[in-house]
Simulated assay, not measured.
Amino acid sequence: MNRCGHVARRLDGYGPAHLRVVEPGVRGNDDIAAVASAVSAKDLRRVFKGTLIAAGGFTADSAHRMIEAADADLVALGRLFISNPDLPERLRAGAPLNRYDRSTFYGGDARGYTDYLFHSAAPVM
Rank of each mutant, 00 (worst) to 15 (best):
C4G: 11
H6K: 08
P96A: 12
V35R: 13
R27N: 12
I53M: 03
F105A: 05
D115A: 04
I67W: 09
P88I: 04
S40Q: 06
A70C: 13
R45K: 05
G112M: 04
R9F: 11
G56V: 01
I67H: 08
R9S: 13
P16D: 10
R99E: 14
V22E: 03
D71K: 03
R9V: 02
L80Y: 08
D71E: 12
R10P: 01
R65W: 12
T104G: 09
N84Q: 14
V21E: 07
L77I: 10
A70F: 11
R9D: 15
G94A: 11
A34D: 01
L11K: 01
A69L: 14
S40A: 09
R111D: 12
T104F: 13
D101I: 08
A41Q: 02
H6C: 03
Y100A: 07
L19R: 02
G25Q: 09
G13V: 06
G25S: 04
A8L: 10
Y106W: 14
S62W: 14
I53C: 00
G108L: 11
N84A: 11
A60D: 06
R10W: 12
Y106D: 13
L80G: 02
A38P: 03
Y106N: 10
I53S: 00
R45F: 02
G5Q: 12
A122D: 00
V7S: 10
D109K: 08
G108H: 12
R102W: 13
L77T: 07
V124N: 07
R90F: 04
D43A: 11
K42F: 01
Y116I: 09
A110H: 05
D61L: 08
A54H: 08
T51R: 05
A122M: 07
V124W: 06
R111W: 04
R46H: 14
E89H: 09
R45W: 02
A95W: 05
F58Y: 15
T51K: 00
R65H: 15
F105S: 08
L74R: 00
R3W: 12
L91E: 03
N29G: 13
G107T: 01
T114S: 14
R10I: 05
A72Q: 02
D73V: 00
R65S: 15
R45A: 03
T59G: 01
A38C: 03
R102L: 11
P123R: 11
P123C: 00
N29C: 07
L87G: 02
Y14L: 15
T59P: 05
R10H: 10
V39S: 12
V22W: 04
R45L: 03
V7D: 15
V39K: 04
V21L: 07
